[in-house]
Design a protein around this nucleic acid. Structure first.
Length: 568
RNA sequence: CGGGGCGUAGCGCAGCCUGGUAGCGCACUUCCUUGGGGUGGAAGUGGUCGGAGGUUCAAAUCCUCUCGCCCCGACCA
């Protein structure tokens, strides 16, 4: 490709609305242009990268035995009503009406559509298992689009859906996809980690995320210092420590704590450790009921875990303050499990302390020396809290948890029968009995990966693409073309020869001075650069530089030495 | 959803407080110059100041409404 014929518009200045490196570089290098909040156009240079990532994903999916199809981006509401998600999905689903006032959505995901097609075409167990995937544009009306491509509203996603006779076969395919994903992430040159995840409102049991590790990542990951345990902190389990609760040593006593409402205030006021306090949150239960949630004072609630408890409404919502005050007869700063008017569930860690401090359910008063079982009923113990750094790894390896940040690039789920059942997809088994298939789904955020790779691979000059997904593998830079016919001719010739050898090559024939030319090549992040100028031609040499090398080196002029450097 | 900020040339910004003929840098056009890390110079092109209404002799500037965009937060009693 000759750059003089290729639309490329780079800027030296950083766009004002970009605050992560990938977003800045993508815009500066002219890879993407913003059209609206969370909406981006892929300009030609950027699209080349997107397509290459897409092709790696496609190759690995095909290799893993999945079959590509393409579903509409607009979906009829009827299917979503069948699965029950038309109402369950919130405002992030873009709902639209056609001219007949019929309801549609711009697909945020395609479980409903795929199950619909599966039930149309698949009747027999002989047709199972299968795995269908597409690479399709999706739209999610994020409450806050940000970080450019990392949390855009419209984005490109690979989504795959598999169907199986039984759970064991789903397990097999899940592992198959897990391996395919690992190959994808390795080919992208990404430093990634597979972590246990929560399956969110998609539903289902087993679920893992593939995270590209980066400080700018939106997700916090809990990683064990021993073994390979890692989990999204949303999903990281906090089992009982195994330590027995100490025996009560103090009598319960009510103390005055005027105006001390938060755990921090009370702990300071009474001079007790935060971890020696039990706090009580109140969540909405079912049909207007309230549920008390007891946590140790220094712990935080994990709403995802709470919402899974049968007494707690899902999605999780805190009770309205007026309702809580009506039930307890005091302000929310003084709640506690003693003489509690509503059912209480407690996090394991809150149950492991004795002689604790908690609200007295009386304004401006707390209780000291409180003990489970003796002073209040022993609440049911459940995992309700967010994991914290320094916790023991929940896999029992003896490791300690520390946090790091990641960008979710892929997510694999075992959905079970949630959708196949809701949408009445059955096949006949060998005995002629109808059975409901097990389902898995597997997503990769293709457009997000482009940004994630940049977050990991960049320097102060620009992007540093690996060969596998670079927009071009090589850029040929002729110096002083207006003075030297020979330079221009040799550069054009090398470009043509490299292209003929199947190497994606860019010839910078814009006639720029070396400074701007090199700056653009570095910004765009092309992995290999060949400079041709009279100076080196005097020694019958070209100059070769890797994007990530400090210094250039001289090589013999001609195609062979170049090919050798490229390892081609 | 709550809070804050910003909309002035393609991009980045100043001007607004204190109303009076709209400016700078980059980019772009032409010419000269320069030629190994964004040369130097000369001359140019380009703006209904986000939109609507109001105050005023006069509004980018003050007031009201509205739209768009960005940032922070989103429950821990």
């Amino acid at each position: 490709m000759r750059l003089s014929c290729f639309p490329l518009s780079t800027t030296r200045e950083t766009p004002a609305d970009a605050d992560v490196v990938s977003h800045q570089l993508l815009q500066r290098a002219g890879f993407i242009r913003k059209l609206g909040a969370g909406l981006y156009t892929w300009m030609p240079m950027g699209l080349r990268v997107l397509r290459r990532i897409e092709n790696i994903v496609r190759q690995e999916m095909d290799r893993a035995g999945a079959a590509e199809l393409l579903m509409p981006s607009i979906q009829p509401a009827e299917l979503w009503q069948q699965s029950g998600r038309w109402n369950a999905m919130g405002a992030e689903m873009l709902r639209i009406k056609d001219r007949h006032q019929n309801d549609y959505c711009y697909g945020p995901t395609h479980e409903e559509v795929i199950v619909h097609h599966a039930r149309q075409d698949v009747r027999s167990y002989r047709q199972l298992p299968f795995n269908w995937y597409q690479i399709q544009t999706k739209f999610r009306d994020e409450r806050r689009p940000r970080f450019g491509l990392m949390r855009a509203r419209e984005f490109l996603m690979k989504d795959a859906y598999s169907f199986h006779l039984d759970a064991a076969d789903l397990d097999r395919e899940y592992l198959n996809m897990r391996e395919a994903y690992a190959r994808v992430f390795e080919r992208l040159g990404a430093d990634y980690r597979v972590v246990q995840a929560d399956s969110g409102n998609i539903g289902g049991a087993k679920s893992e995320e593939f995270h590209i590790l980066a400080g700018s990542g939106e997700d916090l990951l809990a990683v064990s210092s021993v073994g390979d345990y890692a989990a999204n902190i949303e999903a990281a389990a906090c089992p009982p420590s195994g330590r027995a609760r100490p025996a009560p040593s103090l009598a319960m006593e009510q103390v005055s704590t005027p105006g001390q409402k938060t755990c921090e205030q009370v702990s300071k006021f009474l001079d007790v450790a935060l971890a020696a306090k039990v706090k009580l949150l109140v969540a909405k239960g079912h049909e207007g009921a309230l549920v008390g949630i007891a946590l140790r004072g220094d712990h935080e609630l994990n709403e995802v875990k709470a919402a899974r408890h049968p007494l707690v409404a899902s999605p999780f919502e805190l009770a309205r303050i007026e309702d809580v005050q009506a039930a307890f007869g005091c302000e929310v700063g003084y709640l506690g499990p003693v003489n509690c008017p509503i059912p209480v569930i407690a996090d394991h860690a809150a149950l492991e302390i004795a002689d604790f401090v908690c609200g007295a359910n009386v304004n401006d008063h707390h209780l000291k020396g409180v003990n489970w079982g003796r002073d209040c009923s022993l609440a049911e113990g459940t995992d309700l809290r967010r994991i914290v750094e320094g916790d023991a790894a929940p896999d029992g390896s003896g490791g300690l948890i520390s946090f790091c940040r990641g960008i979710e690039g892929g997510h694999i789920f075992q959905l079970g029968r949630k959708y196949t059942q809701a949408m009445a997809f059955t096949v006949l088994d060998e005995q002629g009995q109808a059975i409901t298939p097990e389902m898995g789904c597997y997503g990769i955020g293709v457009s997000r990966l482009a940004a994630a790779v940049i977050e990991q691979r960049h320097d102060d000059k620009g992007m540093r693409w690996p060969d596998a997904i670079a927009p071009f593998r090589v850029v040929v830079c002729p110096i002083g073309t207006d003075k030297s016919e020979r330079v221009l001719k040799l550069a054009g010739q090398l470009h043509d020869e490299l292209c003929a050898a199947g190497i994606e090559t860019l010839l910078d024939d814009r006639g720029l001075r070396p400074g701007p030319m090199f700056a653009d090549a570095d910004l765009i992040g092309i992995p290999h650069r060949i400079v041709i100028g009279e100076k080196s031609l005097a020694n019958d040499q070209y100059e070769y530089k890797r994007r990530d090398a400090d210094k250039p080196e001289m090589i013999a002029a001609g195609l062979d030495a170049v090919l050798e450097k490229l390892g081609a």
